[in-house]
Nucleic acid binder design. Structure first.
Lengths: 220, 220
DNA sequence: TTGCGCAGTTATGTATACATAATCAACTGA
DNA sequence: TCAGTTGATTATGTATACATAACTGCGCAA
């Protein structure tokens, strides 16, 4: 058996901080000081430091004043870079997934889209966010290339805060996003790699338009 | 002024360990124990730990027996994943670079290729390795997308040990590699994105063939 | 002979004390 | 009044001691 009972404290803290940043509970520029966090989690600075370094390497934190870590501030040009790169890479995944996914994987993907229909009907953006993540993750893993999957996930994590905010802010985005998902799904089920590629690129581009507009409004 | 006098010890150690792994001084599975490394660098375990965690996140180290870090072992299927992903991403960079590089960047890229001609003539694979790295880095940065550049560099780092070994092992690879570089360069100078994409994909695929063959021979 | 279990060994996981660098603010002198 | 400097403050950087988990090998019993 290889049941891991021990969970590394640092990873728990890392995951929790990621959650807070993604959900917007911690905003850009917010302090991530070691001592308060250590006190909050009831541990010493050591595992907290580890988590913060991991966050920094993942691109979710950066060095602020007094060398302290703060939640990473992302300006509009960087956001555009991130979404452009993400769009290309997820499109790549979609093309490969259309050609490589197993029958079971295709079935699961279709089920996820079905389930998301319900969330859209109810206007439940929290549920939709989760299903959206599952949809994209399923496609990236369906490309059957672990290196590409991992590389894409890093970018997805860095854009996640904005993508989540997008659903919270613009209720109409749920419907258009879901429609785009349907298009991607159909292309994948039809094993049409080029169509899947195009559809995914368009989908991410649509997100980028909304997100950069939001970011500009907030800044201006 | 923001001249940084202080160099973070952990980063120095990280860079040194990366160098050793890339140059083959440290091979797959070799132990990366904290105490001996700390003694060698004349510091305590703390900064060494930091460097090792960074290595682990970068994909160059993994957990071995007794929870200790060891140099990551990469099997042939993973190698294929890495090269496939790298090929697609560098091809993406090449396409974008063909359309976006400035005149100065194009000029520098051409100069790098010229200089590499000399290394090929002399059969100096160490020099060629360096120029090869410069060539690829120039194209990735020439795409003018920092996120894509960063994502690609992570993959390049993980394949670097094998790509270096390739030049050391197969002298003929220098010439074919250089010929492929010329093809990529010409497409970029002609601002032909699609040709650059194709040429780069082919170039990485050729590397993959050689490298996986080497890996299989070594294993079998 | 083989399987199980127990202890020894070894390396990391964690806590904590102290060192150090960077910032902020108050003070001084022109 | 303002610029420059100096000291207090604050948070991280580093070292080290102790806790803990995992592997290894031995011994014992079936």
């Amino acid at each position: 058996m290889d049941t891991k009972v021990t969970v590394r404290t640092a990873e728990v803290i890392y995951a929790e901080l990621v959650r807070r940043i993604v959900e917007g509970q911690l905003g850009p520029g917010d302090a991530l000081n070691e001592v308060p966090l250590a006190a909050e989690f009831g541990v010493s600075r050591t595992p907290v430091r580890e988590a913060l370094q991991h966050l920094s390497i993942s691109g979710l934190a950066e060095r602020g004043p007094r060398r302290a870590f703060v939640v990473r501030r992302t300006d509009v040009p960087m956001l555009e870079d991130l979404f452009e790169a993400l769009g290309e890479m997820e499109a790549l995944c979609a093309r490969m997934a259309a050609l490589r996914m197993t029958a079971i994987e295709r079935h699961r993907l279709a089920a996820t889209v079905e389930e998301a229909d319900g969330a859209v009907r109810d206007g439940d953006h929290a549920a939709y966010s989760g299903l959206n993540a599952r949809f994209h993750a399923a496609i990236c893993s369906g490309a059957h290339n672990r290196a590409l999957d991992a590389a894409t996930q890093v970018l997805r994590m860095r854009t996640l805060p904005w993508r989540e905010a997008q659903f919270r802010a613009a209720a109409a985005r749920l419907e258009s996003s879901q429609a785009e998902h349907r298009g991607i799904l159909e292309a994948i089920l039809a094993e049409d790699g080029e169509a899947a590629h195009r559809a995914m690129r368009g989908h991410i581009a649509a997100s980028m338009l909304l997100v950069t507009r939001m970011a500009r409004e907030r800044a201006g």
